[in-house]
């Protein structure tokens, strides 16, 4: 059976939603997500306890190294291609070029970090999210679970017992 239902639970308390996540995991439910108005280490720990860390950092490293390398190549090539011979200074003046290398490292690293963050966070995405509620950006924590019609009722009952202020079930395609 397809998971064409979503159970949406609204929580006022952080410890309640953390306990509810543990209960869902114990039940073997994997298809869930949480919403919060601000980042919370506790929530992240509860959801991603066993998951590897965000891969954004690898892209930051790749972007930074690319920027540095690009600056080395650019300054070297341009200084040799159009030689400015001044006071017997070496054409390849790397101490002077290090400023350009630093700036390009930061520039490329920053841009690639943003792109990686957008990619992994699945944004930009202005599509309608069936399991999102506007109060999740105010002061309410949300836990939403995709389930089959049969499971949805049982999950709803369990989440109601876990301290949720409100639990709704919605049909989604």
């Amino acid at each position: 059976m397809s998971k064409n239902h979503v159970v949406i639970a609204h929580y006022k308390y952080l410890d309640d939603i953390v306990a509810a996540i543990a209960a869902m995991k114990a039940r073997g439910v994997k298809d869930f997500r949480t919403f919060s108005p601000f980042p919370s280490h506790e929530l992240e720990e509860a959801v991603y306890a066993d998951a590897p860390r965000s891969p954004v950092r690898f892209f930051t490293l790749i972007g930074a190294l690319t920027g540095c390398l690009a600056a080395v190549l650019m300054t070297s090539f341009m200084s040799v291609d159009y030689p400015l011979r001044v006071s017997a200074k070496p054409l390849l003046s790397y101490p002077a070029f290090s400023v350009i290398m630093f700036e390009c490292t930061v520039l490329f690293g920053g841009i690639v970090t943003l792109l990686a963050m957008f990619h992994f966070s699945r944004i930009p995405n202005v599509a309608f999210w069936a399991d999102y509620r506007p109060n999740f950006s105010e002061g309410t924590f949300g836990l939403t679970v995709r389930a089959t019609e049969g499971d949805a009722k049982a999950i709803q009952a369990e989440l109601e017992k876990s301290g949720a202020q409100r639990v709704e079930v919605e049909y989604v395609r």
Partner: peptide, 27 residues
């Protein structure tokens, strides 16, 4: 840009934010 504050979004957001802060500091 379609931000919803989901766990996945916050996870990558916080990683990126820390790197931005780390890059901006030497700047």
């Amino acid at each position: 840009v379609g931000w919803r504050g989901s766990d996945n979004q916050w996870r990558h957001y916080m990683a990126a934010y820390a790197f931005f802060a780390a890059f901006a500091t030497p700047l």
